[in-house]
Design a protein around this nucleic acid. Sequence first.
DNA 1: GAACCGATATCT
DNA 2: GATATCGGTTCC
Length: 216
Amino acid sequence: MPVLRSRPPPGFLVNVDYSWLTAPAAQIPAVARSLLGWEVSANGVTIRLSEVEAYAGTGEDPASHAHRGPTPRTGIMFGPAGMAYAYFVFGAHWCFNIVCGAEGEAAAVLLRAGAVVEGAELARKRRGDVPDRDLARGPARLGVALGIGAEANGTSMVDGTGPLLLTPPTRPVDPSSVSAGPRVGVAAAHDVPWRFWITGDPTVSGYRRHVPRRRG
DNA sequence: GAACCGATATCT
DNA sequence: GATATCGGTTCC
């Protein structure tokens, strides 16, 4: 049966298994890796994920927004897997995560980059006249291409009730073509190789180490 | 490729 | 008051 990538009525994707998103804490990096090749659709654009980062649960990962427990911003992370966690950063950008793990765990996978496989015209309208590979190359750019922002926070990515929909790979990713390395721009736990990407994929964003800002 | 810096929500 | 899961620009 072909996979429906445009937005279906609620409950339509009953034959897609999302239960693996609710994994034990130790398997969150494996969940992130498995999300490569999955597709995310919103507002007429579909993106094939080429780069993701894992963030472990509360108390386990000093780089996680949820590390110190729930706050008004991070509350959604403590809910069920499959919800979108959106946050605003650097006074300018929205970034998007898929909540993973069991309720109360607060693990998440950051959607860092992907290839636009549907709706390129629309994505270009939102992103400007950039090369195709740059349309969703970077976590904030990915959101812009999808036309999503604050309103996506706390919506489901798995049941069609929100703007976002996560669907299985049209083309599977060969496990041997997945690379791993440190997460981008994080100060804490910079040695943990929880960033995963499709080796050689031109839509993967470049690595940047965390740069402490000079005060003054 | 590396360095710089804007803009502001969030938490301490 | 410090920090930030970034991106665009500028400068080698």
